[in-house]
Computed example of a mutant assay.
Amino acid sequence: MMGKPITGRSFGGCIRYVVERQEAKILHAEGLRMKNPSQLIQDFNLQRKMRPELGKAVGHLILSWSKEDLAKLSDAIMVERSKEYMEKVGIRNTQFVIVRHTDKAHPHLHLIYNRVDNNGRTISDQNNFAKNVKACKEITVKYGYHLGKGKELVNRQALRGKEKIRYELHDAIKAALKTATNWKELEAQLSKQSIAIAYKYRSGTSEVQGISFEKSNLKMKGSAIDRSLSYAKIDDALNRNMKVQLYQVTRQSGEPLLASGLREAVRNDGQHEHHHSGGGKNLLDILLSPEFIPAGSGPMGDAEEAHRRRKKRKGQQQTQGPRL
């Protein structure tokens, strides 16, 4: 099960788009007259007048299931799942209508609700996407619905507005994380796609506490785009990339690379310090860690290695006995 939350300004446009279609079937409504679309629009608009300053009073949600779940989803069950979803995300005590469409192979419905509730209060749309993901996952697991294999299967061409940008950010960041080895490289790759990074610092310190990404005047927290894109998880991914790169080149180039890498690290260390004050390792930390300092690379390395070889030869000679 997947959800797509949308907010809008016009009940008229939304109702006509959803209801006035040959394949549309109204399954359920509360607080509304269902005789025709005009009455639905009139009733929605009458209640929104209690909060005239609220521009985007239209709540529109699309709930979709896999075609493998079709046999499990009667009209009545889809209504029950819709109500359960609404309760989980905090859509309560308001007008709503549930409309099923049959124009696609997969079962799906449209739920239109009034963000001005029955008492004139506003139903918040903050963290809509995070709440949506959590609710859909819980319902999917609870009823054994087909579990999708992640964002890779989402049809990007069908996305619009905020959701479209969210997936653009997701895809761009994931692609950049395949090669970037530090925050400066990540920023440079994303800037080519007009994506900016904003760091959130712990109050009164230079310790990074969180991260947001901005594109087309829309700013989203990394964890709201995807759980794997929080500051800590991105920092871990960059450190892993750095270690892999160092391992590969040290095997090919040997000790000269270590000296070269250390010089480069010392030169760049100050440029990246503010990104790693939260505990993440920078290039200098990694290069100086035990796993990346080759045996015998210290100032006494050559002498110690020669001494070890002499002892080995001496032991072999004693075992073999004197030559005749």
Score class of each variant (00 low, 15 high):
Gln245Trp: 15
Ala158Glu: 14
Ala237Gln: 14
Ala175Thr: 07
Ala176Asn: 03
Ser216Cys: 05
Lys219Asn: 10
Glu187Cys: 11
Asn241Phe: 02
Val244Cys: 10
Arg263Asn: 11
Glu187Gly: 02
Tyr199Val: 02
Lys178Val: 08
Thr181Lys: 14
Leu258Arg: 15
Ser206Arg: 13
Gln193Lys: 15
Arg240Lys: 15
Val266Asn: 04
Ser228Gly: 12
Arg202Lys: 15
Ser253Pro: 00
Val266Arg: 08
Leu169Thr: 09
Ser216Lys: 14
Leu190Met: 09
Asn182Val: 06
Tyr247Ala: 15
Glu187Asn: 15
Thr250Leu: 15
Lys221Gln: 10
Leu218Phe: 05
Gln248Cys: 13
Gly254Met: 00
Leu246Val: 07
Lys162Thr: 13
Thr250Met: 11
Asn239Ile: 03
Ile197Val: 15
Gly261Val: 08
Ala196Asp: 15
Val208Asn: 10
Tyr201Gly: 12
Leu262Gln: 08
Ser216Gly: 03
Glu163Gln: 13
Lys233Ser: 10
Asn268Thr: 12
Gly254Cys: 01
Ala188Pro: 09
Arg240Ala: 13
Ile225Met: 04
Asp171Tyr: 09
Glu264Gly: 09
Ala237Val: 06
Asn241Ile: 07
Glu255Gln: 03
Ser191Ile: 04
Tyr167Gln: 13
Lys162Pro: 00
Arg227Glu: 05
Ala176Met: 09
Arg202Leu: 15
Ser212Phe: 05
Leu218Ala: 09
Ala196Cys: 12
Arg267Trp: 11
Lys174Phe: 01
Gln252Ile: 04
Leu169Ala: 05
Ile173Ala: 05
Val249Ile: 15
Asp226Gly: 09
Ser203Gln: 12
Asp236Tyr: 06
Lys200Ala: 12
Glu264Arg: 12
Gly210Tyr: 02
Gln252Lys: 10
Leu229Asn: 01
Ala196Ile: 07
Ala180Cys: 14
